[in-house]
Amino acid sequence: MTELFTAAVIRDKGGPFRIEQVRRRAIADDEVLVRVVATGMCHTDMVARDQIFPVPHPIVLGHEGSGIVDEVGKNVHELEKGDHVVLSFLNCNVCDPCHEGHPAYCANFNAWNFSGQRIDGSHVLEADDGTLLNDRFFGQSSFAQYAIANARNAIKVRKDAPLELLGPLGCGIQTGAGTVMNALKVAPGSSFAAWGGGAVGLSGVMAAAAIGATTIVAIDIVPSRLELAMELGATHTINSKEENAAERVKEITGGGAHSAMDSTGIAALVSAMVSSLRPSGTAAVVGASKPGTMAEIDLVDVMQSCKRLIGVVEGDSVPTTLIPVLVDLHMSGRFPFDRLVKFYDLDRINEAAEDSEKGITLKPIVRMPQ
């Protein structure tokens, strides 16, 4: 076993994160050891902490890590020590969706990302007392000073980019931007509506603006988020507490949006989003709802107007392709996702979680001790 290092461990349903000393086991031949610089905090971390999705505890969470490769397995040839990487989700690389170029829709996604162990049942982390910890969350468990990832989910990025900022590109930012760019294929000159003005929704706004959509509508109930949306590329905003959002989208877009994305997971908003589409429009659901959540959809409207409602995971992205593109867009000033973030040191991780859940911070990023 290696020397001790610091990690945030969830031992009880609902938290808190406990700062502990842990050890790691040796990396496998297809893995890399990454010295984590910083890790974004995502709603999915909270879902796992609260066991809304039944991941095993105790566990080290964190799935938006960025850092520097410290060691590579003997079968890893595309990465080397010293490379800067963003850690993303892990896929099996053998199922039909993976072979068809949709790794985010991997048929074995849960086993590779939520089981708390390697696919062979082995673990990476131990507590200081020698007991095993569940790990491999999204193939990384990056709320720690070190993370072991597969070479497939460690995405090499340019070294002149601000590494501590880049972690959220691995999940939340990728989800919003990728949904716009890959799943919805928002076109220049088209209209797009973002239902929800959190980090995912605003990433969609920025991506639509970068692509050249000319009518971009942001819907939320928090005035500060709507103000920020305008600064990030939205052409119109709607406070859904004060207006009928679906009707306003139709008015703004002249009959309905070409495409739309819901990042809230709220059933009533999904229903409104579908109704606000123009004929042949497409709406994407990316927000996490509680299992069993049902939305009412007017099937006659969907059929007669040839509308589409799709579910999207991780922006239907190929991370090795999309993440470097988003980095380049950011470095050129066309994707300013740094406007969404606030940094917290690891010993303030519970504060970061609380601020995220209260909506105080759109995208917390937790810095690791160096």
Rank of each mutant, 00 (worst) to 15 (best):
S259D: 00
K358L: 14
D355L: 10
V60D: 03
V270F: 09
V32C: 10
D135F: 06
H57W: 11
A194G: 09
N113A: 01
E351R: 14
E164L: 09
N113C: 07
H330D: 00
C98F: 05
N150I: 07
D12W: 01
G198P: 03
L346E: 04
Q174I: 10
L232W: 06
V366W: 01
M181D: 00
L169I: 08
R24H: 14
G333T: 06
N182L: 12
E231F: 01
G82K: 11
R158F: 05
G256A: 10
M368D: 00
N134A: 08
F114S: 05
L309K: 02
S305I: 05
D345K: 14
V157Y: 00
L329A: 13
A107W: 06
D128W: 12
A144I: 06
F138W: 07
G178A: 10
V285S: 14
A283V: 07
D70W: 10
P16D: 02
H102E: 12
S66Y: 04
A154R: 01
D355R: 08
A245M: 13
F143N: 01
R24S: 11
V186K: 02
D345E: 15
G212D: 08
H57D: 01
E71M: 14
S332D: 12
A208M: 11
V9D: 00
L61M: 09
L4F: 14
I238C: 09
V249Q: 01
S271R: 09
V318P: 00
A8N: 04
G212S: 04
A207M: 15
A193R: 02
S332Y: 04
A193W: 03
F5C: 05
Q370L: 13
Q145D: 03
K290Y: 05
G189N: 09
N150W: 04
G15R: 09
M368Y: 05
H57E: 08
V69G: 01
A257R: 05
R248K: 15
N110W: 12
F109C: 01
E64C: 03
P291S: 08
G15S: 11
D83R: 10
G256E: 01
S275I: 00
V60T: 12
A154T: 01
S275A: 15
G281T: 04
F53N: 00
M331N: 10
P56R: 11
M368A: 03
A207V: 11
V55H: 02
A272T: 12
K156H: 07
R158H: 01
A272K: 13
F143P: 02
K13C: 13
P319I: 04
N244I: 08
